[in-house]
C-alpha cells in the first residue's frame, strides 16, 4: 500500500516534469517525435534507477559514516557522470541492440537534472533502499509518460498554422502548460 502511494504520487500527482520541473531541458529538447521521446524515457528509466541505488548506498555507507555530507553535490554529480559513461560502455559490449536504441540519449542524461534531483530527493525524504528504488522507477515512468504525451501533442502542433511569434517553443510551452493543468486534476488522489 505504501509503495502504491509512492508510485501514484510520483507518476500523476507530483509528476516530475509537470509539477516539479525537473528534466525540463530534455522535455523541450527531444520531444518533437514520439519514437525519440520513448527512447529517452527508456534511457532515463535505466540510468535513474541505477544512479539512485548507487547514490543511496554512497550516502549511507560513505558520506554519513565519515561525516562528510557536505560533499553530497560534488560526489553525486561525479557518480552520475561516471555511471552514465560506464553504462554506455557496458551496453555497447553486452547488448548492441539496446545500445542502438538508447545510445544517443545516454550522454545527454548527465546534465538531466531529473537524475540528480531524484537522487537528492530520496535522501531528503528519508526513504529506505526499497522505497528509493520504487520512487526512482515511478519517477522515471512519470517522466516517460509526460514526454511521450507531449511528443504526441507536438507532432500535431507541427501541422498547424500558428501566429509567427508563437511558432516553435512558445506554443510548445503553452501546450505544456495546458498538459500540466490536466495533470493537476490528479491532485488530491493520494
Amino acid at each position: 500500500m505504501e509503495y502504491f502511494v509512492i508510485v501514484i504520487s510520483a507518476i500523476f500527482v507530483n509528476n516530475i516534469i509537470l509539477a516539479q520541473f525537473l528534466g525540463v531541458c530534455p522535455f523541450l529538447g527531444v520531444s518533437t517525435r514520439v519514437s525519440t521521446a520513448a527512447g529517452m524515457g527508456g534511457a532515463v528509466l535505466f540510468v535513474m534507477t541505477i544512479a539512485t541505488i548507487v547514490t543511496y548506498l554512497i550516502q549511507h555507507y560513505v558520506l554519513i559514516p565519515l561525516e562528510i555530507e557536505y560533499l553530497q553535490t560534488i560526489s553525486y554529480i561525479l557518480i552520475i557522470a561516471s555511471l552514465v559513461q560506464m553504462v554506455e560502455i557496458m551496453l555497447k559490449k553486452l547488448s548492441p541492440a539496446l545500445y542502438q536504441a538508447l545510445g544517443v540519449f545516454l550522454p545527454l542524461i548527465t546534465t538531466n537534472c531529473a537524475i540528480l534531483g531524484v537522487a537528492i530527493l530520496v535522501i531528503q525524504k528519508d526513504f529506505d533502499l526499497m522505497q528509493s528504488v520504487v520512487f526512482a522507477v515511478a519517477n522515471s515512468a512519470g517522466f516517460a509518460l509526460a514526454l511521450v504525451i507531449f511528443a504526441g501533442i507536438r507532432e500535431h502542433l507541427a501541422l498547424i498554422n500558428v501566429p509567427k511569434g508563437m511558432a516553435g517553443i512558445p506554443i510548445a510551452l503553452v501546450s505544456a502548460g495546458i498538459l500540466a493543468l490536466a495533470f493537476m486534476g490528479f491532485a488530491g488522489m493520494v
Binding site: 509537470l18 509539477a19 520541473f21 512558445p170 510551452l173 503553452v174 505544456a176
Partner: peptide
Amino acid sequence: LAPGAFIALGYLIAIINK
C-alpha cells in the same frame, strides 16, 4: 502553480520574438 509557469514563459518568449 505549475501550469502557469509554462504558459507565462511561453507568452513572454512569444512577445520577445515579436
